[in-house]
Computed example of a mutant assay.
Amino acid sequence: MNRRQVLATGAAGVGALSTGCLSLAGRAVDRVDEATDRERLCVVTATNDHDEPHVAAVVVERNGTEVQRTTLELPPHDPDASPYSPPERVVDRTWSTEPANMALRGRVDGGEWRAFGFPGEAAGDCWGPTLAIDESGAWGWRFHRTVGPGAGPTPADRG
């Protein structure tokens, strides 16, 4: 069993205990992917369903080089707001969506870094992970395939 399979198995257990598909909750790692050059990262978002504000930090690496480091201020969840609360914050994409060896890490309120583990079937799919803070203040990575506006080319794709 390779690292990806081990991490995916752990993530599945966490997902069963959490709302949505949270991966790697509670595990701080620097890098989870073997050099596959197959992942496509199209958009990264963050949400806060907790009744307190939080600050999220996100780092994106492409082929071992840091291509994005961002801090996002996440307001508290407002139960009286629209059904689209908590609002989703989007990380400005500065990386190409062409397949590459991608790595993604995040942390909340200066805590430990946690890596997003691309699912084993990630090859060729365009992923849109969300750093999601739940009602209790716990957080993890929620992942989904994306084909929306975030999947389109950026200047980085063309140059």
Rank of each mutant, 00 (worst) to 15 (best):
V59L: 06
R158L: 14
V55Y: 02
R69S: 13
A100N: 00
P53Y: 05
N2A: 09
T94C: 04
P83E: 13
D51N: 08
D80S: 13
Q68M: 14
V90L: 15
A103M: 00
D80K: 15
D37N: 14
R107F: 02
P75W: 04
V90A: 11
V43G: 01
R31S: 13
L41F: 08
P86T: 07
T154L: 12
G106R: 02
A100T: 04
T130F: 08
R62E: 11
S18G: 04
V55E: 06
D33R: 01
W141I: 07
G128S: 14
H77L: 12
P76T: 13
G15N: 09
V44T: 07
C42Q: 07
V91W: 07
R107G: 04
R107I: 01
E66D: 13
A46M: 01
A123V: 09
R142Q: 15
R105M: 02
G150T: 07
P153L: 15
P76H: 11
A57F: 04
A123M: 08
L131D: 06
D134C: 09
E66I: 10
V6Q: 10
N63L: 09
Q5W: 07
G152F: 01
L22V: 09
V55F: 01
D30A: 15
G159P: 00
E39G: 03
S82H: 14
H144T: 14
D125T: 13
T130H: 07
V108E: 05
R89W: 06
P129I: 04
E39C: 04
G152L: 13
G117C: 14
H50G: 00
G148M: 09
L41S: 02
V6H: 10
H54S: 08
G110N: 10
H50Y: 10
R105E: 00
V14I: 15
G128C: 13
A57E: 14
G148N: 12
E121V: 10
W139F: 15
